[in-house]
């Protein structure tokens, strides 16, 4: 089943119109798969999720909107501290994101370009290799998942990730609801009553919105970005040669972060 962006948007749109939850969206997407999931066939089979980011279209303002939407969607607190901060999606300049793909005379505009960064959902993930409890692992569809129920907080995955994609809950994230100095910057935490928060002592990171994909919705950042600028972020199935991600990777030049390490990131940047 090919799910490209347009289909996705249509489905998402219809389900929003109907005002009902994920069930409907999913049934429209693929009749029978909901039934299959209840018969122990996961929703992940036969897919290879990837994301393409058009750096020309993603300006800093838009990235910030995506970050805010992502962090609200997943109840990520604003801890206001470089040491303790938790982030799933954030911004970084080209210079620091692609340290080996530049030189002294690279165009000024590119070197200082702000790009969105998050977990790369690598095909060959070192984080999953090192986890002693399989709290983080690779799903069939390529998503690197975290099971916060099982994480013991050893932080080996944070040492293993070459992209700094992982954050640790150094304290209880819910303290932002009571701590006087943090209350102000987190007025409505937890913002999404349909998603949990985390507890202290576990690692967390971007999950490619696995919970939204299960309902036939695109990741939140993709939805927000495309709402403002068409095809600024493209999400889809690499296993499908007809998918929009495959088409655009075939047509435009793209790069990935630190390809020399062999982790095979699934985040592609159009430069």
């Amino acid at each position: 089943m090919a799910v490209d962006r347009r289909q996705f948007l249509k489905v998402a749109g219809i389900s929003t119109l109907l005002g009902i939850g994920g069930k409907t969206a999913f049934e429209i997407l693929s009749p029978g798969r909901l039934e299959a999931s209840s018969q122990k066939i996961p929703l992940t089979t036969g897919k290879r999720w990837a994301m393409v980011i058009d750096t020309h279209k993603m300006d800093e303002g838009l990235i910030e909107k995506c970050i805010e939407a992502c962090h609200r969607e997943h109840n990520v607190p604003n801890l206001d501290s470089q040491k303790e901060e938790v982030k799933w999606l954030w911004k970084e300049d080209y210079h620091h994101t692609f340290p080996n793909q530049q030189h002294r005379f690279t165009m000024h505009d590119i070197i200082h370009k702000i790009v969105p960064v998050m977990c790369n959902h690598c095909s060959n993930p070192p984080c999953c290799r090192v986890c002693p409890t399989q709290s983080t692992w690779q799903r069939d569809d390529g998503i690197i998942m975290m099971d916060p129920h099982r994480c013991i907080g050893c932080r080996f995955c944070m040492a293993a990730c070459p992209f700094g994609a992982r954050s640790f809950n150094w304290g209880d994230p819910r303290r932002v609801m009571t701590d006087d100095s943090l209350k102000e910057s987190n007025p409505d935490f937890p913002q999404n009553p349909e998603y949990p928060t985390r507890c202290k002592g576990v690692v967390e990171k971007c999950n490619f919105c696995a919970e939204r994909l299960a309902k036939g919705l695109e990741p939140k950042c993709v939805e927000v970005a495309n709402d403002k600028k068409e095809a600024a972020m493209i999400f889809g199935d690499l296993a499908d040669p007809e998918s929009e991600v495959r088409t655009i990777l075939n047509e435009r030049y793209s790069i990935r972060r630190k390809p020399e390490l062999g982790t095979e990131p699934n985040l592609y940047f159009l430069i």
Binding site: S38, P42, L43, D147
Partner: peptide, 16 residues
């Protein structure tokens, strides 16, 4: 749900 990606459950009454 978290580990196997099976999000739906068929109840005793046949409802999903």
């Amino acid at each position: 749900v978290v580990r196997d990606g099976e999000r739906y459950f068929k109840g005793e009454n046949g409802k999903i």
